[in-house]
Design a protein around this nucleic acid. Sequence first.
DNA 1: GGAACCCATGGAATCGTTTCCATGGAATCG
DNA 2: CGATTCCATGGAAACGATTCCATGGGTTCC
Lengths: 345, 345
Amino acid sequence: MEAVTIKDVAALAGVSVGTASRVLSGNPATSADTRERVAAAAAELDYQPNAQAQALRSTRSNSLGLLVPDVRNPFFADLAHAAEQAALSAGYVTLLGNANERNDQQDRYLDTLISRRVDGVIVAPVGDDGGRLRALIEREIPTVLVDRTVPGLDLPSVTTDSETGIRQAVQHLAEQGHTRIGYISGPEATSTGRDRFASFTRAVAEAGLSQDPELVYFGDYQAASGSAGVHTLMDLTNPPTALLAADSLMAVGAISILHRLGLRIGTDIALVAFDDIEWFALLNPALSVIAHSVEDMGRIAVDLLLQVIAGHTPESVVLPSELIVRASSATPIRPTTQPEQRSQQ
Amino acid sequence: MEAVTIKDVAALAGVSVGTASRVLSGNPATSADTRERVAAAAAELDYQPNAQAQALRSTRSNSLGLLVPDVRNPFFADLAHAAEQAALSAGYVTLLGNANERNDQQDRYLDTLISRRVDGVIVAPVGDDGGRLRALIEREIPTVLVDRTVPGLDLPSVTTDSETGIRQAVQHLAEQGHTRIGYISGPEATSTGRDRFASFTRAVAEAGLSQDPELVYFGDYQAASGSAGVHTLMDLTNPPTALLAADSLMAVGAISILHRLGLRIGTDIALVAFDDIEWFALLNPALSVIAHSVEDMGRIAVDLLLQVIAGHTPESVVLPSELIVRASSATPIRPTTQPEQRSQQ
DNA sequence: GGAACCCATGGAATCGTTTCCATGGAATCG
DNA sequence: CGATTCCATGGAAACGATTCCATGGGTTCC
């Protein structure tokens, strides 16, 4: 079955290809009669324009690239969903790429996106050197960073201000009597890893809590490193009584190993996670989280990108974060390390 | 910055466009010397071929369409990931579309995929009438169904045999002393909804348990309907002592409402869910599930599609399902509704 | 009633590749 | 050594749309 082209439509309608094209693309320079005949012919043949030919000629593909580090991470799945819906309602299809937290896969996808001449790209970058992102910039392909940034690349971005949420979390834990908070950090090779770690460090200093460097474990945003982090931290001679995990997947890893160690979350140890995942509220005990709106992030990223495509240079957006206290951190814990405890009131 | 074309490469290498094209596409009819000069020129200019022009001329786009009902559903996120990786290693990019469990969005995406002239499409279909799927078939676009099928459409598919897993689950619950099992079903407008419901009905009859039609609630595979189902079922004058949810999202909805009702899962009520999600093992109590391999499903779907593209007509594949017992259903429950209880041994 | 204008239309060029066909020089054969 | 084959290459057509330019018929105006 040969695909039906605009030629077939034109022939059936008894007009030239040019006229058919004008009608189908909504060019007003057409008579009502022609419009009707061409539309009828297109419907009759169930004509679907060849997007490749359109893109080749018009240098617009009506498609956006979206590159995330890991689709299975619910945060990025939600982000993909939000961005995709926003793009769709602006008339763009989304090409979703999955870097698997690997630089080489990200670079490979970036080249693919260049080849496909997408009209713009949204990237939650893996790693710190930019890689083929620089090729996008050289080609002046509209690009927006989301969630993470890359040092030295001056691109519009949508990120989260971790400072507020993390400070709230640390203060909240301090109020429950915790003095030693273990921090399961994201990798220092990501901007979010560095940023959240810096916020944590400041918050701990501010609250006058232990700044013991042993209380920090550097993970890689994958579940397994959350487990490893818990192992390392709880093996300290002076282990923490509360944990803060820098993303949802590491929190998942932490939870599973805490269960296995027989430590009751919320009672034996407090736990707070960065990223608000629907499921976290269902856990028993429900997990306290530092929430930020992935909905907004996706929508705004598309918005910024559309502005760049339109030739503007929008300002970067920083979204707020906020602590949501649930049972996993709500119980004051008897300070095992501080004997001096009197009724102070 | 004008994009660099094969013309530029040819000029720099001092050959004709045709020759440059031959070298770049690996055509053997080229001299070693030319090959080297063209490759050097392409590297020098950081040439990325225009995929649109290639596709237009060669009628192959090296891209696949993947249409899922809901990316935020972890089952489909995993499926997308598995398929995308399999496609990538076969040299295809994946265009991911999200139907949002809506027929119109699915149809819209299908038209987009036709327009983009993807080489093939993998669909987990929404609804029962096929909709624009028939347009794919008319155009002889290679298509494979995954997870769900559509009555009347004779396409290769990868699905799960729900029979075994569901029978195991029902028998297991019967062994714990349950006689009234509540079933939160998927919609009858999906093949999986019908199929799992039929398996449940058979299994219940086989095990000699209550076939009270009131014990079945028809949901829509979204979390909210899981909650609604629990409400309805637990409001019965003779409520079930065990629940079986036909997918993970409805199980999530069920869990959240059970918590709110103060019913302890695994003690007051047993719960088993279809679909094995990593997180389910982390819940407290851990959730018993009917597992099937989404990994395999994605991989095999791509595999079948590649066969169709190659001109073959592969057999459909049915994957097994299997009960994994965890704490949410492991405790025998004292039958509250049956007073006649003697030492029967 | 003829000049000026408008507007719908047809025809052709174009986008960047691939691929077919022709060419011409080198190699091989009898 | 002349004829055949081979092979790398250049040139041009083609893919399916958009868009520019020219055309010609119908209005409008003086």
